[in-house]
Design a binder for these strands. Sequence first.
DNA 1: TCCTTAAGGTTGAGCGTTCAACTACTACGG
DNA 2: CCGTAGTAGTTGAACGCTCAACCTTAAGGA
Lengths: 159, 159
Amino acid sequence: MGDARWLSTEQQRVWRNYMAATRMVESEIERQLQRDSGMPTTYYEIMVSLSEAPDRTLRMSELADRSRFSRSRLSHAVARMERAGWVERRDCPSDKRGAFAVLTEKGFDTLVAAAPGHVEQVRSALFDVLTEEQVDQLGEICATVRKAGPDPFGPGWAG
Amino acid sequence: MGDARWLSTEQQRVWRNYMAATRMVESEIERQLQRDSGMPTTYYEIMVSLSEAPDRTLRMSELADRSRFSRSRLSHAVARMERAGWVERRDCPSDKRGAFAVLTEKGFDTLVAAAPGHVEQVRSALFDVLTEEQVDQLGEICATVRKAGPDPFGPGWAG
DNA sequence: TCCTTAAGGTTGAGCGTTCAACTACTACGG
DNA sequence: CCGTAGTAGTTGAACGCTCAACCTTAAGGA
C-alpha cells in the first residue's frame, strides 16, 4: 500500500484532461439526444442494431452481446422502449426461454429523425475540432486500449 | 435533414473504437472503486478536492465548480456522503445562504485507503497499454477537445 | 425603504444502471 | 428417463443523475 505506483506529473495532467474531455463529449451528446429526441444514447444504439438486422429483429441475447450490455440492462431498456412504442417483444418458437426484440415502424421513424442531429453533435464535439492526423492517432489509441481490455473483440470490431 | 453531414467510413471506425474504449476504461475504473471502496468515482473526486483544500473544507459552490458538477448533483452526493460519515456540512457565518463541506477524518482515511487501488486501475486500463508517444498525443487531443467545448477552462486547467 | 433580481443551495420525481435473486427452459451425463 | 448444470431472460431494490421547482438570503436600484 505504501509503495503504490503513482502517476507522474505528466500522466496526471493527461488523466485530468482525459476525464474532462471524455465526460464533456459524452454529456454533450447525451444531452442533445435526450433533448431533441427524448432518448438516451444507449437506446439509440439499440435501435441502430435492430435497424441493421434482418426483419429489424434480434434475439435479446444477441442484441445484448452486440451492444455489450448486460442482459438485465437490456431487459430494462427494452421494457422502457416497448412502453414508448419503439420496440416489440416476440416469443421465440424454437427456444421457449428466448425472446426476440423487433423495431417497430414508429421506432424506425424515430431513429431516422434522431440521426442527423446526433451525428452533427458527434462531429462538432469531436471530429470538427481535431486535425486528420489527430483523428488517426485517436483511432489507434482507442483500438489499442480496447484490445487490451477484457473481452476486447466482438461483432463490429474493425481494428 | 436529408443532406446531413454523415461520418466517413474512417470516422465511423474511430467513433466506434472511441465509444468502446472510453466506456471500457470508465466502467473498469468505476467497478473497481465501487467493489473495493464502496464509492463511485464522483465521490472519490469530491473527496480529493476536499482533501487538498485548507482545513479540508470548501464552499459547496466552489466544490461544484472545481468538479464541474451541477449544484443539485453535488447536493445529493454530499447528502449521501454525509450519511456515510465521510463529509460534514457546516453553515457559513458570512453568508447565511451558504454552506461548507468538510472532509471528516473517516472520509480522509477512506480516501487514503482507496487511492492505491484506484490509481493502479487507471494505469492498467490506460497508461500501461500506451506508448509514451501515444500518451503525449492523447493529452494533446484531450486538451484540444476540452478547449473547444463549453466552459473550456476552470480550476485545475493545465492545458 | 421597498421592490426586484440574482445567487446559494435543497428537494422530489423520474429515469437508467447495477447487482443479486429468481423463473423457466434446455442440454447432457448417467 | 431422471437429475443436474447451465442458459435466456426478467424482476425489484438501491443508487446516482437530471431537471425543474422551490426556499432563503444578498445586492442593486428607485
